[in-house]
Write a protein that binds this DNA or RNA. Structure first.
Length: 575
RNA sequence: UGGGGAGUCGCCAAGUGGUAAGGCAGCGGCCUUUGGAGCCGCCAUUCGUAGGUUCGAAUCCUACCUCCCCAGCCA
């Protein structure tokens, strides 16, 4: 007999080297580059999050591609924090991101920070100035915007565009030395104010920011812009395939321009469609708002699309990886349905979660013909999908709890569960027949009186008799009280951003996204469970032990319900 | 109305001149001590629209329509 110790999922299982067999255009490009011997067949990728928030399921797709593709082709993948903007970045996020990547099952080859390259970037900027391709601009932010022109009209050149190299060098050094206030000057690339690609209209390379950086402290007061840092960071790391999302398509020409001007290793950028999921959103800015405004309990609230939220909710790394592998990699802006993610969560949990019995909304049942003080230990299978999971003993006695939803005084058509005069099987228990119903003064059903058939111990029917339904139960005298948190989607609309004039996404927040149940009754083996452990409550769904649990007072998060045919039938009847 | 991307089943997505893969969802059935799981079957004469080339087009050409991205000293 095995205990009920479940895999808590605390230790990350390493992801397989294969990134899946499904073909996609990026894989095709890499395969072709290897075939032609580009970079000597070497593959180097990187996952470059900005530490300004927690990782979400959309990042899982990027991680899967960055790490998965590198592994598939025998290459390497670095984790690089894109920390060029100290006003938004924090060490807390750096740590959370590393934890999440590891939890997902990936190991980075190199661990880097864009800030590692600040000195090199500075020297390269001096190089561009000397080449007459960058200048210090005294225009204010507003003026720069005005000078930039619009999408349909060209911009005008900055009056500071033709400063001498010597003056630019002097000014830039003084910018670095902290002689000028924030926003007073910028270093800009000298490209083309009339370019149809707005990114080429003398883009800002450095801004002055007297702000402490989470890693470089107060060493710098000028910080590089994304475009001036990203390509070069890739290049320094000899990244061969720099995979990013579609919105950076417009930045690719500038990415290439900087690399060409500097004559450094030619990393190449490829863009794929970022993941969008129905009923949620991936905007870190908006997720931050939910956290800051207290709309959720934190970045790891089980309703959040963050990896830490999903972890707390009970999603497994394996399920998320399988989901990522099932996704298409294209250039289409699509919205994947939540059900696709849920399918992979159920699939993995079905294979691995131990089955237990738990009654969420208890209804007391007294078995009138069962001996008053008898307690029988019934054999229960831990996981019918996995014989090695073994079995356990569950106590059975005269007074039990069953699910309120498993009884109907006036059963509708196709409702097979318990009803007056009807016989059902108590899983691993006995067949019982409902004899009478006890109600309180308000007419609520508070107790059922049933009889059992002693010949059906274990739920077997020696006479071959068929029962339509098997329901779960917990012995009242042995039950452990538990709190169960039920979750629904955080938003009521498939697209949370679809709002009426004057409203924002918070108008679509689902007021019923969290329902807390107390006084739930779970089998005695669940008295002391470890946070993170995952179970299937038979017939109810998958549940994960929350860190809020205390000995004898477990708290469970519903990861996801089981598919519910009866609910579907009932729903259909209502229409 | 500048530039860049994209339009194949309800959703995601293969396909790249030879006669529409697959997954999710859905719908039937079988099986079942979870109305779970599993198993079997069904589910685009049609590829944004209209023309054209070709023996033959989702794939090539032309025009048009729709959607997304870019005007941060954000990434």
């Amino acid at each position: 007999m095995n205990s009920l110790k479940s895999d808590s999922g605390a230790k990350p299982a390493e992801a397989p080297a294969e990134s899946g067999s499904r073909s996609n255009f990026i894989r095709d490009i890499i395969a072709e580059d290897i075939r032609t011997g580009k970079h000597g067949g070497r593959v180097q990728t990187r996952f470059p999050p900005e530490p300004n928030g927690y990782l979400h399921i959309g990042h899982a797709k990027a991680i899967y591609l960055d790490f998965g593709l590198a592994a598939e082709f025998g290459g390497k993948c670095n984790l690089r924090f894109d920390d060029t903007n100290p006003s938004k970045e924090e060490t807390e996020y750096v740590e959370a991101i590393m934890e999440d990547v590891e939890w997902l099952g990936y190991k980075w080859d190199g661990l880097f920070y864009a800030s590692d390259y600040f000195q090199q970037l500075y020297e390269w900027a001096v190089q561009l100035i000397k080449a007459g391709k960058a200048f210090v601009c005294d225009l204010s932010a507003d003026e720069i915007r005005e000078y930039r022109g619009t999408l349909t009209e060209p911009g005008k050149e900055s009056p500071y565009r033709n400063r001498s190299v010597a003056e630019n060098l002097d000014l830039f050094e003084r910018m670095k030395n902290g002689e000028f206030p924030d926003g007073s000057r910028t270093l800009r690339a000298k490209i083309d104010m009339a370019s149809p690609n707005v990114n080429f209209r003398d883009p800002v390379m450095y801004r002055i920011l007297h702000m402490e950086h989470h890693r470089t402290g107060n060493q710098w007061c000028i910080y590089p812009m994304y475009d001036w840092a990203h390509g070069q960071s890739d290049s320094i790391e000899k990244v061969t395939h720099s995979i990013c999302t579609l919105e950076f398509d417009n930045n690719r020409p500038l990415y290439n321009w900087y690399i060409e001007q500097l004559g450094i290793f030619p990393s190449q950028q490829y863009e794929f469609d970022r993941l969008s999921l129905s009923y949620t959103m991936m905007s870190k800015r908006k997720l931050l708002r939910l956290v800051q405004e207290g709309r959720v309990a934190g970045w790891n609230d089980p309703r959040m699309p963050t990896l830490s939220g999903m972890r707390r909710r009970g999603y497994t790394p394996e399920a998320i990886r399988n989901f990522a592998a099932s996704l298409g990699v294209s250039k289409t802006n699509g919205v994947t349905q939540l059900q696709q993610l849920e399918y992979y969560v159920r699939e993995d949990l079905n294979k691995h979660a131990l089955r237990v019995m738990a009654v969420l909304n208890p209804l007391r049942v007294v078995i009138d013909n069962y001996p008053d003080n008898l307690v029988e230990e019934m054999d229960a299978v831990n996981n019918p999908e996995d014989a090695s999971a073994g079995s356990r003993k569950v106590p059975f006695s005269k007074v039990l709890y069953i699910e309120q939803d498993d009884f109907r005084e006036d059963p509708p058509k196709q409702f097979y569960r318990l009803a007056p005069g009807r016989e059902v099987r108590l899983r691993y228990g006995y067949l019982i027949t409902c004899q009478s119903v006890v109600k309180d003064a308000d007419g609520n059903i508070v107790e059922l009186h049933c009889t059992y058939d002693p010949a059906t111990r274990g739920g077997n029917t020696p006479d071959g008799r068929k029962v339509k339904s098997t329901i779960h139960w917990v012995s009242a005298a042995h039950a452990v009280d538990a709190e169960v948190r039920l979750y629904d989607t955080l938003f009521t609309k498939e697209d949370p951003n679809e709002v009426e004039e004057g409203q924002d996404f918070t108008a679509n927040l689902n007021p019923n996204s969290l329902e807390v149940l107390t006084g739930c009754k779970v089998e005695p083996g669940l008295r002391d469970v470890e946070p993170g452990a995952r179970y299937q409550f038979e017939r109810m769904g998958y549940f994960c032990v929350d860190p809020d649990s205390k000995s004898g007072k477990p708290v469970f998060n519903r990861t996801i319900g089981l598919k519910d045919t009866w609910a579907k039938i009932e729903q259909r009847g209502k229409k």
